[in-house]
């Protein structure tokens, strides 16, 4: 049962228009697909999407059908940020030269965690640094799910994937999840935020802020994948909530370099509640879970300190 009562009262305030159509081919209970719904509810029809290769691209654009109700382009895997740079520059030049009418159009590039944190990182860094007026959104399901659940640099410590399996000599992924939002912050751009599908209004508010700023914005949205996380198809939203409540994925925004935690969790829940329902963590011992929880809490403390320092 939902513990977030704001949702109960606010659900009907969700914009009605659906610009991401049913009939898409995402797995049952796919949170990234839900993220697409929210993203377009927040940004509306005057939006152009540049999509990297990945789950969302594959499940939404199988010729001759498309799930998209906005103009959408897919070029390749590692380059949606560069493609969006071109779209933004093209629109800007053509509006300035009077070739097309002046109009506010939001350009959004997006990829999964692999397409963002691994193969696409250079193109994202370039686009952010150049200052294009665009949003980059990473929908993070913590592995290369489309190719069959291989580890990425967004896969958390301890998670078993098909290329970071748990075995007698391994406890799954043995590296730390990359902090994409903090990498974006290091580009000194006007807006950076983390978000989670379990907090749709927080997520949509952040998208609107990202669209409103003049310059680049990055949103890192946490989107559980029941198929890849080896869990039941009905718990993606519950897991997203637990990830926030256990500090596995804290929600914050960084406006002009100033950190603010947007979902305060004064009493973090035991990490075990979050890991327990997921098959990818089945192999972890209590000691390992303790270790991981300690590290996540230490980092959450650093984040809280940054947010407090930002208020001074």
């Amino acid at each position: 049962m939902s513990s977030d009562l704001t949702n109960v009262f606010a659900a009907k305030m969700l914009p009605k228009r659906e610009l991401f159509s049913p009939g898409h081919r995402a797995c049952q209970g796919c949170a990234p697909a839900l993220a697409m719904r929210y993203m377009l509810k927040a940004l509306g029809p005057d939006t152009i999407i540049c999509n990297s290769t990945g789950c969302i691209e594959i499940i939404s654009s199988s010729y001759p059908e498309s799930a998209w109700g906005v103009p959408w382009i897919h070029v390749a895997f590692e380059n949606s940020a560069a493609v969006a740079s071109g779209v933004e520059a093209g629109l800007k030049a053509m509006m300035r030269k009077g070739r097309i009418p002046q109009r506010k159009i939001t350009v959004l590039a997006q990829a999964g965690d692999g397409g963002s944190m691994d193969i696409g990182l250079q193109a994202i860094s370039g686009a952010l640094e150049r200052g294009h007026d665009m949003i980059y959104m990473c929908y993070d399901n913590e592995a290369y799910m489309n190719t069959g659940i291989q580890r990425s640099s967004g896969t958390p410590w301890g998670a078993a994937t098909t290329t970071s399996p748990a075995g007698t000599q391994s406890s799954g992924q043995n590296t730390w999840k990359k902090s994409l939002a903090e990498i974006a912050v290091a580009h000194h751009i006007p807006y950076v935020a983390t978000a989670c599908v379990s907090y749709p209004f927080d997520f949509m508010e952040k998208l609107k802020k990202a669209a409103a700023v003049n310059g680049p914005a990055l949103i890192h949205v946490f989107a559980p994948c029941p198929t890849g996380w080896r869990c039941a198809s009905d718990i993606a939203i519950r897991l997203g909530r637990l990830a926030v409540q256990t500090a596995a994925f804290p929600l914050y925004e960084v406006v002009d370099g100033k950190f603010r935690i947007t979902q305060n969790v004064p009493h973090l829940k035991p990490l075990k509640l979050y890991l327990g329902p997921q098959g990818r963590y089945n192999h972890l011992t209590d000691d390992q879970i303790e270790y991981l929880q300690g590290e996540l809490r230490r980092r959450y403390g650093l984040l809280v300190a940054k947010a407090e320092a930002s208020q001074e």
Partner: peptide
């Protein structure tokens, strides 16, 4: 693909 939201054809 010239028909937006046409994934709705896919049941």
């Amino acid at each position: 693909v010239q028909t937006p939201l046409s994934a709705a054809n896919n049941h």
